[in-house]
Amino acid sequence: METIELAAAHTDVSLWALFMQAGFIVKLVMIGLLGASVWTWAIVIDKYINYGRARRQFDQFEQVFWSGQSLEELYRSLSERPTGGLAAMFVAAMREWKKSFERGARSPIGLQMRIDRAMDVTLARESEQLEARLSSLATIGSAAPFVGLFGTVVGIMTSFQAIAGSKSTNLAVVAPGIAEALLATAIGLVAAIPAVIAYNKFSGDAGKLTARMEGFADEFSAILSRQIDEKLQPRAAAQ
C-alpha cells in the first residue's frame, strides 16, 4: 500500500518565516504588540530604578531629619536641590514657613493652612510622578491579549479563505496559516503578562511611597504647628 505524502513541500515554519508569511494586518498587530512589549519593559526598568532610588532617598532624608539636626540647617542644605519626595515636601513647607514668618504672620491658623497646602501640592506632584505611566502598563496588560487575539482571528480568517481557494483541507496546507495567526496571540500574551505583573507590583510600591510621604506630611505638619505656637505665642503675649 502506498503511503500518502502528507506534506507536499516542506514549508518553513521558523518564527521569521511565520512573520514574513503573515498578512498586512497581522504584521501590523505583531509590530504594534512588539512595540508595546518594548514600552512595557522600558517602563518596568524606569520604575524599578525610580522606586529604588526614591526609597533610598526617603530613608536617607528620614535619617537626617530625625537626627536632631536643626530644621533651618537642613533647609539650607536641601533648598538648592531637594532630592526625593520627602525632601521636596520638607523644602516646600519650610519655604512657606519662612515666607510667612519673615513677613510677620498674623494668624497661626492661616500659616498652618498654607503650609499644609504647600505640602499637599508637593505630595500630589510627587505621587503623580511616581505613578506616571503605570496606567499605560495597565492598558497594555489588559488590551494586548485582545489585540493579539484580533491578529489571530484575522490570520485564521485569511487562512480559511486561502483553504477555500485551494480546495484542500490537508493539514499541511492549513497548519502554517494557523501557526502564523497564533503567533500574534503569543506576542500579545508575551507583552501583556509582564505588563500586568509589573503594574500590580509598581502600583503597590507607588501606594506605599505615597503613604510614606503622607505620613511624613502629617508628622511635619504637626511639628511645624508646634513651632508656630511656640514662636507666635510669645509675640502675642508681648503684645
Binding site: 518594548v38 522600558a42 517602563i43 526598568i45 524606569d46
Partner: peptide, 20 residues
Amino acid sequence: MNDLLKRSLVASAVLHALLL
C-alpha cells in the same frame, strides 16, 4: 526623569532585540 525613561526605553529595546 525623562532622561531615565529614555535610557530605559533604549535598554528595553536592546533587550527585546537580543531576545528576538
